[in-house]
Design a protein around this nucleic acid. Sequence first.
DNA 1: ACAGCCATGTAACTCGTTACATGATTAC
DNA 2: GTAATCATGTAACGAGTTACATGGCTGT
Lengths: 183, 183
Amino acid sequence: MGQDLPVTGYALLGLLTFGDELTGYELKQRADITMRFYWVSPAMSQIYSELARLSDRGLVAAVADDSGTSRYRITDEGREVVREWMTETPAGFPVLKHPVALRLLMGHLTDAATTRAMLERYVEELAAARRDLAEVRAGLVGRDEPGQNFHHPSLVADWGLAYFDSEARIARRTLRRMSADGP
Amino acid sequence: MGQDLPVTGYALLGLLTFGDELTGYELKQRADITMRFYWVSPAMSQIYSELARLSDRGLVAAVADDSGTSRYRITDEGREVVREWMTETPAGFPVLKHPVALRLLMGHLTDAATTRAMLERYVEELAAARRDLAEVRAGLVGRDEPGQNFHHPSLVADWGLAYFDSEARIARRTLRRMSADGP
DNA sequence: ACAGCCATGTAACTCGTTACATGATTAC
DNA sequence: GTAATCATGTAACGAGTTACATGGCTGT
């Protein structure tokens, strides 16, 4: 039953549990607007190869629509496999690849202006990411109440917004601590 | 000059700029106590193969100590390559792989108790990670002032502590929002 | 007609992991 | 003496990326 899949495989299955039958292309778009904030946005090629694996194992079924395009739908077994994964295996601790923190660690190798510029740029990028996510969140309004289809996605989106706010606060605080020192 | 390296390569070079000559083994230990919080802890085998590449390119030099063990020291060229990387290339936005958020997204596939247990466990793991990092941070006290060797590492450690605190706050808030609903 | 999006895939490659193997030194 | 730690590597493999290739359909 519960053969292991790469987490990205479960993630794709998860995206297919919100009611729609999606093409590989559409799946990529969904991943780009939501999953990328707290997981990754897989490359197109990976989506297709992962879909092939899921299909091999009977976890998704491809149905050709009128125009001949393959639309993927999660099967009962697929639903069961995701459920089992969620209940039987621990989630694991987040992995963060934070190039800003990594470079800050080596701040002694450059001048303070370079580090400050990096942090300021990060604050701007955070603001842009926050705007994108806020837009996604706004699109869920009206379908985000407990019991509704997008309740959990809205919890996740709010998590992401709070995370971005926190990062911006921390980056600004670090900037203040740096300018307390010399140039 | 500035051939590209995997970021982990630059990270290892960075760890070698704090004054010591380190063995591969020691490098792994340093990575485990600090880098793992905001980058990754590379496997031993990767550290050795990465050191081989850095050595090939003349960015580190191996010197055999009295017992015959290889200790690695960053070269002037290595120092220059890191500096160039930091000043000439953008840091890039952090990549987060957050299995807790990913599973929360699919909360509709399990019962609320499972999701709550996951969040509670995450809060505990955050507390443990925070304790570990606080210990590291405490070890820097006295060498963490501006201009001192571990000023930047201490800024990064404080960043990490604030991040863990923020995550714990967000997870607890999510738990409250969930228990506002039914069981 | 041409640009841009929709749609799907293959091939080559890199990063990074786990498993395996080996042996020296240190602590109890 | 024997367990743990120090130390270094090889081999097999998997996930995921970029580059490349193809072709239909849609709007202007």
